[in-house]
Computed example of a mutant assay.
Amino acid sequence: MTEVRSVSNFPDERCVLVATDKFKGTLDAATANAAIARGLRAAAPGIEVRTRRVADGGDGTLAVLLENGFEAVDVEVAGPTLVPRRSVIGRRGDEAFVELAEICGLVQLPEGRLDGLHASSWGLGLAIRAALDLGARRIHVAIGGSASTDGGLGLLAALGAVATDRDGQLVTPDASGLLVVDNLDRSGLDHRLGGVAIVAVTDVRNPLTGSQGAAHVYGPQKGLDASTIVLVDAALERWARLLRPGFSPDVPGTGAAGGVGAGILGGLGGRLTPGAPYVLDTIGFDADLAAAQLVVTGEGSWDEQSLQGKAPAEVLRRAQAAGVPAAIVAGRVASRAGLEELGVRSITALVELAGSAEIAMRDAEPLLERAGAELGQWLGTR
């Protein structure tokens, strides 16, 4: 454990709030939180430990909300390769919550095989239709973790829009269709959308196009090669003009989920909101924070991107605003920039505890428990 500076003046009765995001590819947030909490309780039995898993609009967000007042509803959708499948959305009163990653994200690709040109956001449109069938008046859509770079073409097509090429032929609802689309007719969109607020919950702020856009930044993760990325980026530029006259591809967040952010903002007239603040507000995080004398947060990899809209960074900002010191436990820590200014007093990297990344991933749960125990011992000396 690397101590940044000491924590002092704890009250006699201490409460620690453990609020991590998932350790991607290794553990979900609930398991990570529980392991840290076990270590804390074992090393410092007098400390009350509360756990809250957090998310930022990527995969795992729906699971967090289902623990906090949303009801799971089974729906018929389609995966990223258009194969029909059953999935789940959340419902609370007249509000619905849809997670793209759960519907047609990377984790839903058959055998994990990337298909950059043919993966589609079509299934997301089917999930939104299902929410409309339930009578939803507000639909929040978490759009992190997508498998496609279709600009939301599949999403809009599933909701009734008609996209055609120069010859008036329907295009496929994927990136290959995006390359040849010449016209978008939105007149057939499901009429119920007119009375519903649709909000894209984003975990990134990338624009639709350019060097920081959907194709260039995230295309390689989805199976697009260098030459195809250039073509898709140009197609997304044209797509922006089809979505709505005057629509700008430079709006932050429109590049989220391979351009689904643009599809919701420009094609459906929705809006975008940062994922981490939305989730923390929805689960009542600030009330838990008010009772804590220390908050522990983290994720699989803490790097220079972690402060750019990720859930643990939002935890740190809120802790700082509330005057609550913080500790970070992460799989690896590649950057410490800005952490001391955010009130971080302790940093633990599992890779350093384990001696290698391979062992850290293999033994993540016991290592998190050990990290919690070391943190509990450290607290006992304050």
Rank of each mutant, 00 (worst) to 15 (best):
W378H: 10
A163Y: 07
D150S: 15
L126F: 02
V201M: 08
S121L: 10
R53P: 07
L243V: 14
A78I: 03
E48P: 03
Q305W: 09
R244T: 13
F285P: 04
A291L: 15
R241N: 13
S301E: 05
I328E: 03
E365A: 15
I359P: 04
L170K: 07
V77K: 05
G123M: 10
G145H: 04
S211W: 12
A276W: 02
D203K: 13
L339P: 00
V54P: 03
L159K: 01
E102V: 07
Y278Q: 02
E3W: 01
Q169W: 13
V171D: 00
L65F: 04
E340Y: 02
T273L: 09
I283R: 05
A157P: 00
N33S: 15
R53Q: 11
L294D: 02
A130W: 04
V75T: 01
T164R: 09
R382A: 14
R137P: 05
Q169S: 08
A161H: 06
H191C: 15
T254P: 11
R86G: 09
D363S: 15
G219M: 09
L268G: 07
R332D: 14
A373Q: 08
E13N: 15
R138G: 04
A262S: 07
M361S: 13
P173W: 05
D150P: 05
I103S: 00
P277E: 06
G219W: 01
G69E: 09
L179D: 05
G259N: 03
I328V: 15
I328M: 06
A42L: 12
G266N: 13
L375H: 04
L109I: 08
G284V: 11
D288P: 06
E365M: 10
G355K: 04
E358D: 14
V333G: 01
R317E: 09
A349N: 06
T61I: 00
T164W: 06
V98L: 09
D182W: 05
T348N: 08
G152T: 12
D94A: 13
L342W: 01
I143Q: 02
L184G: 08
G343C: 13
G60C: 07
G46F: 12
D303Y: 13
G309Y: 08
L178D: 02
T51Q: 15
A30N: 08
V204H: 04
I264P: 03
L236M: 09
P80I: 15
R370C: 11
D203N: 12
G338E: 08
Q308D: 10
I229F: 08
G343P: 01
S211G: 12
F247Q: 11
R50Y: 12
S335L: 14
G372F: 14
R41G: 09
D185A: 09
A240L: 14
A96T: 06
G380K: 04
E304H: 12
L184Q: 08
A19K: 06
I229V: 14
H191K: 14
A291C: 11
F10P: 06
R166Y: 14
G57E: 07
R332E: 11
